[in-house]
Computed example of a mutant assay.
Amino acid sequence: MGVQVRPATRTDVPALSTTLGRAFFDDPVMCWMLPDARVRRRRLHRLFESLTRHHHLSRGGVEVATASDGIGAAALWDPPGQWRQTRAEEWRALPSLLWSFGASLRRGSIVEELMKAAHPEEPHWYLAVIGSDPDVRGTGFGQALMRSRLDRCDDEHAPAYLESSNPVNVPYYQRFGFEITGEIPLPGGGPSLVPMWRRPR
């Protein structure tokens, strides 16, 4: 059986969070936010669990790509006009974020504020996170997820937006029609996020 894409359910959250934690372990921005590799390995999945449970899942845009071995990749999308967290969502997520970041919480807040400031106002589908487990990377899981939601964008003639936290992935997103719109540098010589926009089709 090949790769199958389906909407995520609440029972998928632990597994998809583990997959995303593994996917982003070596990500430049995650390494900047959580520089201790041991801490990152233990806690990064909790960050994705919190984001999924307290924001993205309720928006209906979370999808997983599965095969016989389980969830190989996940994508956290927000529909047009729904990318901002509500104050209630922020409060519910805070305990998990404190546990995930600890002393690095300030760095996480800096990244969040810079991303908010650069976020386009025009209604769009927002790809907040997409990642494949390193064990299946390059075997079509991420591509299946991208195609699933971008097909819907095209059906709705809606634009899409993302920030690439790893420059290596920029050409990959360009193949799906995303275009670079600027740069979001992190302070103190940190890495940059690359905002990318896909025009409606």
Rank of each mutant, 00 (worst) to 15 (best):
R107A: 12
R175C: 06
A8T: 08
V136R: 02
R43W: 10
I180E: 07
F101V: 12
I110C: 07
V29A: 02
L193Y: 06
S68H: 09
P80I: 03
N169W: 11
A128E: 14
L57N: 00
L145A: 09
G60F: 08
M115Q: 12
G102S: 12
Q174I: 10
V170D: 05
L145F: 12
R53H: 00
V13K: 06
S164L: 09
V3G: 02
A74E: 06
A15R: 14
S17K: 01
P28Q: 05
D36P: 03
I110W: 04
G177A: 03
K116F: 12
R107P: 14
M33F: 02
R46C: 11
V13N: 05
L105F: 14
R92M: 00
R46N: 12
P191S: 03
S17W: 01
S165N: 11
G2Q: 12
I184R: 10
T66M: 06
G177C: 03
A8I: 09
T139H: 15
S68M: 08
G72N: 04
D69S: 13
K116T: 01
G102Y: 15
V29M: 10
K116Q: 11
S96H: 12
Q85A: 14
E90D: 04
A158P: 02
L127M: 14
R152H: 08
R147M: 09
R106N: 14
R199E: 14
A160G: 10
S104N: 15
A15C: 04
V13M: 05
P123T: 07
